Computed example of a mutant assay.
Amino acid sequence: MFNWEGVSEFVAVAETESFTKAAGRLGISTAQVSRQVSTLETRLAAKLFHRTTRKVSVTEVGRIYYQHCRQVLDGLDEAERAITNLQTTPRGLLKITAPVTYGESMIAPLINDFITQYPELEVQINLSNLKVDLIDEGYDLAIRLGQLEDSSMMAKRLGSRTQHVCASPSYVSTYGLPHTLSELEQHNCLIGTLDYWRFQEKGKARNVRVKGNLSCNSGHALVDAAIKGLGIIQLPDYYVNSFIESGELMSLLENNRQADEGIWALYPHNRHLSPKVRMLLDFLGEKLA
C-alpha cells in the first residue's frame, strides 16, 4: 500500500516555499515538517527541495512529484468533504486527556460548550499530569503545554500561554521591586514543582535558580500566598490574569518574560482523524487562539 507519510508536508512546503510557512498552514511545528519531508526524501531516494539559509525551492524531480501529489490530495479532499457532509453532527465517544489545572480551568469548560452544541457526543475527560499512552489507552486527543518532546504523535498548536512573575502591592511596598534577574536572590520566591524560573535575557533563554520559605505543587495555593504578601511567584497567565486585572497582583520583570509557550493538541499519527475530532480541534483552536 502507498505510504502517505510526509506527503501533506511536502505539498505545503512546495506551495509556500518555506518550511516555517508550511508548518503554520498545517498547524504543526517546523521541526515536524522538516522531519517528515526528510523521511519522504529518504523513502523516495530523491531530493525534492533545494535548501539554502534564505530560500527553499522545488527540484525538477520535486515538481513532477508535486503535480501528482496535488491531484491525489485534491481527490482525497473531495472524498473527505463528501463523507463529512454525511456526518455533520458529531456523535459517538471522544476520549481526551489534559493537565489537571489547565484542564479544569480552560479545557473542560470548552468541551462542555462543545457538548452543548453536539449532545449526541459521549466524552470522557481524564485530567492528569502524567503522560498517558494515547494509543495503548485509546485516547483520541491529548492537550500538552510548553515545549513538546519528540514523539510519533501529530501535533496541532491551539494557542499559547504566558508566564508571569507576580507579587502583591503589599509585598512590593515592603520589600521593593526586583529590577534585574540577579536581584531575585534578595527576595522570597515561592516555589512550585521546579526550583528555577524561566526568563529571557538579551534574546536568549535563561533559567534562574530561586529560593524561598514556601514550596507547593499547587499553583492556586501559590497565588493565594502571593496575594497575602508572602513572596513572589512565577505562574502561567491562566492562574494570575484575573488577579493582575483586579490589582491584587502586580506583574514584574516584564522585560525578561520568556517567550510564550505553545498549547498543543496531540493525536496518534496512525489514527484516522474523524470529523468529530477535527471539529473539536477547530473549536478549541478558535477559542484558545
Rank of each mutant, 00 (worst) to 15 (best):
residue 133 D to R: 13
residue 77 D to P: 00
residue 22 A to H: 04
residue 44 L to V: 03
residue 176 G to R: 10
residue 39 T to R: 13
residue 154 M to P: 00
residue 174 T to M: 12
residue 78 E to Q: 14
residue 34 S to D: 01
residue 233 I to E: 05
residue 55 K to M: 02
residue 246 S to T: 10
residue 138 G to N: 15
residue 164 H to L: 11
residue 108 A to D: 07
residue 29 S to D: 11
residue 97 T to L: 06
residue 271 R to Q: 14
residue 200 Q to Y: 08
residue 190 L to W: 06
residue 18 S to L: 03
residue 20 T to P: 00
residue 253 L to M: 07
residue 92 G to I: 05
residue 94 L to Y: 02
residue 248 E to T: 03
residue 64 I to S: 14
residue 231 G to Y: 06
residue 256 N to T: 04
residue 17 E to T: 02
residue 93 L to W: 07
residue 240 V to I: 09
residue 148 L to P: 08
residue 261 E to R: 05
residue 83 I to L: 13
residue 111 I to K: 05
residue 48 L to K: 06
residue 272 H to T: 14
residue 224 D to R: 13
residue 168 S to H: 12
residue 207 N to S: 13
residue 153 M to Y: 15
residue 62 G to A: 02
residue 256 N to M: 01
residue 16 T to E: 13
residue 46 A to Y: 01
residue 93 L to V: 12
residue 251 S to M: 00
residue 205 A to H: 12
residue 23 A to V: 09
residue 190 L to V: 04
residue 209 R to L: 08
residue 244 I to L: 15
residue 165 V to M: 15
residue 182 S to E: 15
residue 271 R to F: 00
residue 51 R to W: 02
residue 286 E to Q: 12
residue 139 Y to S: 09
residue 51 R to A: 00
residue 257 R to Y: 02
residue 220 H to W: 10
residue 30 T to F: 02
residue 98 A to S: 15
residue 288 L to K: 01
residue 249 L to T: 04
residue 98 A to E: 04
residue 141 L to W: 09
residue 138 G to W: 08
residue 116 T to C: 10
residue 30 T to H: 05
